[in-house]
Structure formats: C-alpha cells, structure tokens
Design a protein around this nucleic acid. Structure first.
Lengths: 391, 391
DNA sequence: CGAATTAGATAGACGGTCTAACAAATGGGA
DNA sequence: TCCCATTTGTTAGACCGTCTATCTAATTCG
C-alpha cells in the first residue's frame, strides 16, 4: 500500500524545504525563505510560526543591512532544537561527532574499535552516550537527541541489516534494530561511502547538485551514487560497489574471491601493499603522498597506475550514469594530486565524448570527516523525512 | 524556483495513480481502485467522477462475479479519451503506432526512413498524420491527439535536443521543438533504448518493478536504467551508454573513435560483421539465430563470445547500480538463448555475490515492438505528468 | 418480501496553500 | 517634526484537497 498523500504531507514537504533553505542560508529572513522555496510569504509565515512553536527555529538578533522599509528579522535553526549523532565505525577506531540540527559540530570524539561484534556495539553505545552527555550545555536544558547515523564499511541492505563486512568479519547482522533498542533514538545505518556522499551533498562540494558520484578508498574502494536528487541505494541497497569492478582480468586477488578488482589497485590498503612489494614500506597514505611529493619514482608510478585504474573504472560509471560531477573523497583526496593526471587521461580515453566534456572533477572539501558527517546527514535526512512518493 | 506543491498537485498525483491502477486492471471497480491506490473510497469516488466528467473514464458493462450485496460497476479508460502516437525512427525505416490512452494498439504502420534530416522529419510528419487519420473511427467523433513519443538511436539531452546520432549522421538538432511545431501536439523525444525501457515498465516485463536495467542491441548496444521508480536520464540525459564500455582494451575499433567498446562485439551490426569475417555472410540476426540453432559452430562460438562480453559489461552495471532485474530486449532477445549461458557464467565470475544472487534475468516479451511502444510510454508519461518534486 | 450485505455517493470536518488586505517598522524629504 | 513611500510580516477568507461518517442503491438469502 502506498503512503497517503494529503494536506499533512504537503505541510511536511514544505516545512522540510524551509528547513533546508534556512540551514543553507543562516540568519536569513522569511522574505528570503519565500524566494528560496517558492512558497507564498503567507505560507512561509505560518510554517515559520509553526517551527518556532515547535522549537525548531528561533529569531536571531542579526542587524541586517539597512534599507528602506521595515527591517527583516533574521531566523536561525535553534541550537536547542535537538542533537544529532554521526559515527564512523571501523575495525580500529570509532569516530563520533555531535551536531545541532543545523549540522554545526558540537563535540567530537574518537575511541578504539573492535572486530568483535558485541564489543564494537558496546563501545559504540558507550561512546555515543559519553559524547552526547558532553554535548549537553552546562546549565540549560538538554536538547533532545533527534537521531543517530552510522557509516560502516559493509554491504548494508535497505532495512539496516549488515549483509557482509569483510574488513570487520561480520555478516548477516541486524545492526539497526540492535542499536536502536540499545540507544533509544532513531538509528540510521548505511554503507560508509553512501553516508559520505550524503555529507558531501548536504555540507560539502555537492550542495544543490542533483547527479553526482562520490568516490573514496580506505580498505576498499567505494562509490556513492546520488542520482536525480536522491541517494541511490539500488534494489537491495548495494549500489555503488565500484571497488569490485574488474579492471585487470586475472589480476591481483581480492578479498571478495575474484581477481583484478579495482580496489586491489587503488585502496589505501592495496597501495601500501604494492608499495611494500616494490621495496617501500610506508605506514599510511600521507607517507605515500609525501614520498611522491619528494619525487620517489616508485610511488609516482604506483599512484599513476592507481589513477589509471580508477579512471578506467570511473569511465564505466560515467558512461552508465552520466553524472555531472565526480568527487574524490576520503583517503583518495590525500593522493588526489598524484592520481588525477592519469585519471583524467584515462577518462579522456574511455569515457564517451559528450559525457566526458561536461564532467567536473573535484577533491572533497570534507576529507576524512566525511563519514561521521555522513552519519549526521543520514540522521538529519531521517528526522526530516517526507513520506514517499513525495520528494 | 521549485514548482509549488498545493492541493491541485495532490489531486493530480492521485488522479495519475488511479489512472495507472485502472490501466493495469481493466474493468475493475471503484472498490478495487481504492484498495490499489490506498485512497479512501470517498476520494476515489470524487476522482472517478472527475475523470468521467473529463471523458477519461467510462462505466463499462461488464457483469461482474455475482456476490451478495450491490454489484460493482466496472470502469475503463475511455477509448475516445484520446489517441497516443509512438514512433521509432531509424535510418532505414520509421515505425509508427497509435494507441488509446490505455495503451491499446489502434493502428500500426511502417514507412521508409531517411538519413536526410529534413526528409526524415517530413516523412515522420506525414506518416504520423496518415496513421492518426486512419485511427479515427468511421462515424463517431475523433479522439483528441494527446501526445506523441519518439525513440531515436541517438544521444538526446533532457530538453529533447539531439546531440549526436552516429547512425543517422545527425548532430546538435533541436528535434523536439521542430516536431512539436510541425505536429501541433506535445512531442516527447528520447533515446530509443530509454523509450523501450519505459515500454517494458508500463506494458512489459517490468510492471511494478522499481529498479531494473533494459538492454538492447541494434546498430549499437544501449541500456535503459530505471532506478528508484523513475527512468534515469543522468545529468545531461546521456545515462545508460553501456555500448561504449571498454570490454577489450585495444580491441575492435568503434564508431565513437575508441577501441574495444562492447557494441563492437554484441550489436546486430557487429555480430553480422564478425560472422562475415569468419566466413558466414548472414542477412540479419534471425539468420544468425537459425544458424546457431542448426549447430553452426562458428555462430555458436561467436554468440557465446558476445554473451561473455555482454556479461562482463553487465557485471559492471550490476556492481554499480544493483538492479533487481535485467531485461534483454530488442534484437538481443532474438539470440538470447545462445548468449545467456555465457552471459550468466561471466556474471557469476565478475558480479559481487550478494548482488548476483538476487538478480533476475528476463527476455523481453515486447521484442522489437518495444521502441514504438516506448514512444507511447513517453507520451503517456507526459500526458500524465505530475509536477516534480512529487513522485 | 424483508433483512443482510456490499458498492458507491454525499455532507461536513479538517487542514493545506493562495490572494488580498492589513499592520508594523523604517528612511527620506518637505 | 511629521508625513509618506517602502518593505516585511501577519491575518482573514477563498478555494481545494483528503478523510470520517452517514446515507442511498442494488443485489442475495432466508
């Protein structure tokens, strides 16, 4: 049965529009919100009144530019309206961040991770409780916890069930229900790359962009597809697995059981492994970037090869989905300057002309913070959700 | 400025829902429409009344199964409500079909095509006028022409501008405005494969499926991506160009200027060319299928190779977009039985396990009629359009 | 032939957005 | 100093949705 579409759904949709307009334009006035959302100023007035009533919005005291006529009254999303939690769960570490509903960071923390499922969930639970407690203001009333979003390097299905996480050694675990019961707030769990793509869309380089692809590479290589104004998850929730495109038939063995997958050439793990094989033991990608910057020919060649492989896989993605923008994020942004030339050349070679011509490539401004902020984006999206089929 | 969402938009959305429910369930009653759409029966009543008022719907005299209580009154989309035109424009031929608003075929015709732009558009214009005239009932009033949809083997941008059509030799032509002016009805022009995918969704194997991929191969190989309940066109409108994925680096030269593109191995044109190179001159894919069916080892091997290449490219598409269903249509359906074994094997080899596991593969039931019926689907979609951001 | 049953229509509540008029707050100029 | 033009924001009412509740219509069953 489809969800019903009635007056209440309209209000919800328009309220979400006003919210995002205000989030992206802090301290703007109702007048501006009308213009931004296309709603009549009368409608904007009642919506803003309702949001103030609910404590979501407050009038701020920003003396606006002096013009003739009645001065505007600036509005803002109330910091006390609520708290969002974003987390990035990795085998070694768990990073947690809290923000206001507007996405302004309040507190951050980093705690050890674990590959033991129960232990990791417990640590996550305790870590979130601690950060949330620390995010509460000294004297005033505590803003309510509105939602929690978590990015995990795993195949996650559309119901928040972890299907497969090679690096964590987990499979078939109903992560979301487990956490929701433990944490007592709405929990959204998704693949880390999809979360990061959402962050890029709400807070980063892709604000207002309707069709883009986000690429990142840590232990694997992931792709987040934002298509037609929505994060695209696919039939089961597994879309975006660019890391397992075969780029070298019969090539390096991959953890997925196949050979020649992109991520055996381009992820941080595999780049460091290849560097080791070529006599360069390096601790991380920053060291690899430093070596390349110093002119080490081994690293230069290695990163050039990585760029070429990534460009080849990306050409497939471009030919298939025709994004207008590709963002290199996560660890890929660390070595972006060394992989981009080969990546661009390979793209020129393998992507169709008209699709290649209007394709922009950017390096993520969010960098390694993208995943926890992606958790925030998931939580915000959940808090502001509009019942389908409206969007 | 975003389109406004108000009561009228809700009515529009719900009317479209009722329309499609009635289209997919002919001769059903208001009661059924309520259940199908989730709308209250009172709402359904007023919507149906409005549609009868506008002439879109009529009460039909279908004696329903006898049950206790007041009998249902069967409803149907009025054949006189309007006419839709679908066309497939190819270098050699133009196929035109007219249907009722419900998608029931009224007339079909086939006329010669042309690679001369002006000539082709004139022929199309005249052909459509003729078929529309022939579709008018003898005595009664003529149903109004509600829309025209055309599928062309070309890169079409989102405004209906033809950007590049290698097989026709056209580029940068504002096809849609030209035709709309000439034909005096709403015209929708899109890539032939995208049109066929829409046909598959509305009339074929993908009814009710939210995420699927349609594949076809004539002079090239095309893919239609239907993602998240919508035909996905990409940032510029060029999404789905699976035919130009590089499957054999440095392989056969392609019309796009690159080498080793999928469509140099799998399209009808290239299969026949390869058969010729191997000493088997064949007129078309039916002959190729016949030869393979007779056990010709050359054709068997050739089609097996084609299946393998197609499976390889498809594995990329599967890993990236995680469709739940892949449909082989157009000319690919002619040789489907000979390419499917290798295609499946290659998919097993290169698609990620969880994505492969729940992937269904079907051969199109619409076959070569998919493109003109895709024109119908485009026209119907246009006639029933709901202003974004609803849907 | 009346009661039960089911389909469909109608009245009214409720809640949206929009238009239009109004109130509020400021700068500019006589 | 005072009045007015100008701009922002609010409010009343029209209009249009869907939904609940009730009513009417048409049939079967006993």
């Amino acid at each position: 049965m489809l969800p019903r579409v009635n007056s209440a759904a309209i209000r919800r949709l328009n309220m979400v529009r006003v919210f995002h307009a205000l989030r992206e334009n802090p301290s703007c006035a109702q007048r501006d919100l009308s213009r931004l959302t296309g709603l009549d100023k009368a409608t904007t007035s009642t919506i803003v009144a309702q949001m103030i009533e609910e404590g979501l919005v407050e009038r701020t005291e920003a003396p606006r530019a002096r013009r003739i006529g009645r001065p505007e009254t600036a509005l803002g999303i109330a910091p006390s309206a609520g708290l969002l939690v974003g987390a990035r769960l990795e085998p070694g570490t768990i990073r947690i961040v809290t923000t206001t509903l507007a996405g302004t960071v309040v507190k951050q923390s980093q705690i050890p991770g674990s590959t033991d499922l129960a232990a990791a969930l417990r640590q996550l639970h305790e870590g979130i409780d601690a950060v949330v407690a620390a995010s509460r203001p000294e004297g005033g009333t505590a803003p309510p916890l509105r939602g929690i979003g978590i990015g995990i390097p795993a195949l996650m299905d559309r119901e928040g069930r972890l299907v497969l996480a090679p690096n964590l050694g987990w499979r078939d675990t109903p992560i979301r229900p487990l956490l929701e019961e433990a944490l007592g707030a709405p929990v959204h769990v998704d693949n880390d790359t999809k979360a990061a793509a959402m962050a890029e869309r709400l807070f980063g380089a892709c604000r207002g962009v309707e069709d883009f692809v986000y690429l990142t590479g840590h232990s694997g290589v992931g792709g987040g597809l934002f298509l037609g104004g929505r994060l695209y998850r696919g039939a089961q929730g597994f879309a975006g697995e660019i890391g397992h495109l075969t780029v070298v038939p019969g090539g390096r063995p991959c953890g997925c059981g196949k050979r020649g997958c992109l991520e055996t050439y381009v992820s941080e793990t595999s780049i460091l492994a290849q560097a080791g094989e070529r006599g360069r033991a390096l601790p991380d990608l920053w060291a690899a970037a430093a070596a390349a910057r110093d002119g080490d020919p081994v690293l230069r060649t290695l990163l050039e090869e990585a760029g070429s492989h990534l460009g080849f896989a990306l050409s497939h993605l471009v030919n298939l989905t025709n994004p207008g923008l590709v963002v290199l994020g996560g660890n890929l942004s660390i070595v972006a300057e060394f992989i981009l030339p080969a990546l661009n050349a390979t793209l020129d070679e393998h992507a169709l002309g008209p699709l290649r011509r209007d394709l922009r490539l950017l390096v993520s401004p969010l960098g390694p913070d993208a995943v926890p902020m992606g958790g925030i984006a998931l939580a915000m999206d959940g808090f502001l959700s509009v019942p389908s089929p409206i969007l």
